[in-house]
Write a protein that binds this DNA or RNA. Structure first.
Lengths: 189, 189
DNA sequence: TCGGATGTCTAGCGGTGCTAGAATTTCTTG
DNA sequence: CAAGAAATTCTAGCACCGCTAGACATCCGA
């Protein structure tokens, strides 16, 4: 009976092995290169094993997305906590953009590939944790508006900066000034 | 020799037939449902015919994206031209969001699927045309900053609103207030 | 009318996600 | 400790994908 605990532990271990492998492969060669066959070969198991852990390829992407959002949340919170007074917003925004450029595949998984992640009210704690540092820096700027609406608007501005820059839609050399503009617009008013 | 003109005309006709079919199928059942096989069946030709018009599936998506961006540009310009004085920014922004929700598959093609479209300096005129109405409404708000940088920042804010809302990341009932916030932030400062 | 050029189709390659059923390993029990 | 049961893993294969080579048909100009 004790062995069942060990098996469960080994299963959990293999599950993170899968997620990590998927993440590394995606970061190295892009998500299209992350196929079940290659993933199976990489972890040295046959394909059906993957399906005993995840419902399908999409669920693996979702798992990477969830992990990534957790790390993004940590990065944002760390940036906020470590910033000089008055510089929290700039620090959080910069951390967001840095995460997007530093982990493009994870960012892609989290924001354009993930399809099975519940958001709205019944979102996992990890997702809400990501919203917290954003709320902390944007809510004070709310004025007459709903603080959450302002946070969502500010998040959208930063997020738009991240995705348009990633897709080559914006002039790279003006990246810093664009962020300045957004920060200034949200601060002075 | 005259017949060659007719043939070229018919070819062009069939090309738009393909693009329209792809667009309609994508809008109806999503992009994954737009396969070469189904597309060929739909236009009542065999698969290789599609490859005599486009380099591959991606090029068809790009064609839909380009067409969509052209329409988006028209919609933005129309909104700007038809707006009451002082309301141009709000009108353009609203038109952008309406286009995103009204033609989700085209929007997806234009901003997350298209991979072969040149942007930067050597972008087709259609793409630059889309930037014009945005520039027209954001540049006057530039202040000390580079007008193009401000336009890009404003565009990013609206775009972020569009994509996060589309992916269910934002509370639907606060859509209007979020837009208000963005407009107000960019206007008052 | 006929030969060549142009256009189109059939058939198939290697790859994908996913799964049924066989084979193997592991655990429990007599 | 051996044998049966249960859990786990693998082999093999399905239907589909994007894409293409080569056979076939059609149309044109001489």
């Amino acid at each position: 009976m004790v062995t069942s605990q060990r098996r469960e532990r080994e299963r959990a271990q293999r599950e993170t092995l899968i997620v990590n492998a998927a993440r590394e492969m995606a970061e190295a060669d892009g998500w299209p290169a992350v196929t079940i066959r290659r993933l199976a070969e990489r972890i040295e198991y046959s394909q059906p094993v993957l399906y005993s852990h995840f419902a399908g390829r999409g669920a693996i992407v979702d798992a990477v997305a969830l992990q990534g959002i957790g790390e993004l949340a940590e990065a944002l919170e760390a940036a906020r906590a470590g910033a000089a007074p008055g510089e929290e917003l700039a620090a959080v925004a910069q951390a967001y953009l840095d995460f997007a450029t530093g982990h493009p595949a994870v960012f892609e998984a989290a924001f354009t590939l993930a399809e099975g992640l519940p958001f709205g009210p019944d979102a996992p704690d990890v997702l809400k944790a990501g919203f917290a540092p954003l709320f902390a820096v944007f809510a004070p700027l709310a004025g007459d508006h709903d603080p959450e609406a302002v946070t969502e608007a500010g998040w959208a501005a930063i997020h738009g900066l991240a995705v348009l820059a990633r897709d080559g839609r914006l002039r790279p050399e003006h990246q810093a000034e664009r962020l300045e503009v957004v920060l200034e617009k949200f601060t002075n008013s």
